[in-house]
């Protein structure tokens, strides 16, 4: 049996606020096997993004453990966590976060070069990825010259640049219209079919239904449940 790509054990996240502590996650457990596609749904503010941030090593839990490829990330320093994010995790954000002064191609080049790729190999991979997301003819275009859907495609290409073990997509269709959202959902589904583990946080039913497994976050207990389970 292969090792899980991501494992969360008893994850709790409490945000201290002036008006009192707010619990976002409570004792959340999650196991993602290689090649799985999981959608986490739930109402706004239920902690979906928080869970992705904890699993993506950009935040630390109040308690609990996150293991990426069997490694407890709590024991890693900032540089090691950065390296882990660069090589093992691919992020897709709701707001894309493409660098506006770079072209689509350069945005996809960026994480590869940061990881130490050779420029020629990096460009070849970028062209492959932009072709994969259907933007082979937009390599030299800046984000301001692309539509929202195209920007998210570039962001997905960027997330795949260093061949990550898992792609974490946080509301990837949140800024897009329904038709474009469906296209992005289809693209993420294809990424999953091509062997990459995908974890999507969304309240978009179409997007969630394209996933292999669906979990619901929220409710009074701030835990993950199978859909339809009474909590």
């Amino acid at each position: 049996m292969s090792r899980p790509v991501v494992e969360a054990r008893g994850l709790t996240k409490i945000f201290p606020m002036p008006s009192g502590a707010v619990t976002a996650l409570q004792e959340v457990d999650l196991l993602l096997d290689p090649g799985e596609s999981v959608a986490i749904t739930g109402p706004s503010g239920c902690g979906k993004s928080t869970l992705l941030h904890l699993l993506g090593c950009v935040d630390t839990p109040t308690s609990g453990q996150v293991l990426i490829d069997g490694v407890d990330v709590a024991g890693l320093n900032d540089a090691a966590r950065s390296r882990l994010r660069l090589t093992t995790i691919g992020f897709v954000f709701q707001r894309f976060f493409l660098l506006p002064m770079l072209t689509a191609g350069e945005n996809v080049d960026l994480p590869q070069l940061e990881a130490g790729a050779i420029r020629r190999d990096c460009r070849r991979r970028t062209l492959e990825l932009l072709d994969y997301v259907g933007l082979a003819d937009r390599v030299g275009h800046r984000p301001s010259q692309l539509s929202g859907g195209e920007m998210q495609r570039v962001a997905i290409a960027r997330a795949l640049a260093n061949r990550p073990r898992i792609v974490l997509a946080d509301e990837p269709t949140g800024e897009l219209d329904e038709v474009t959202g469906e296209q992005i959902a289809a693209l993420l589904h294809r990424v999953h079919l091509d062997g990459t583990t995908v974890l999507i946080a969304t309240h978009d039913r179409n997007l969630a239904s394209s996933a292999h497994r669906r979990l619901v976050l929220g409710g009074r207990d701030h835990r993950l449940h199978e859909p339809g389970v009474d909590r």
Binding site: G56, S82, R85, F91, F93, F97, L99, P111, E114
Partner: peptide, 16 residues
Amino acid sequence: LGEVAGLRALGFRRRR
């Protein structure tokens, strides 16, 4: 700040 956070999330180290 959003871009910087995005770059950090992608794996850019602080010193970079």
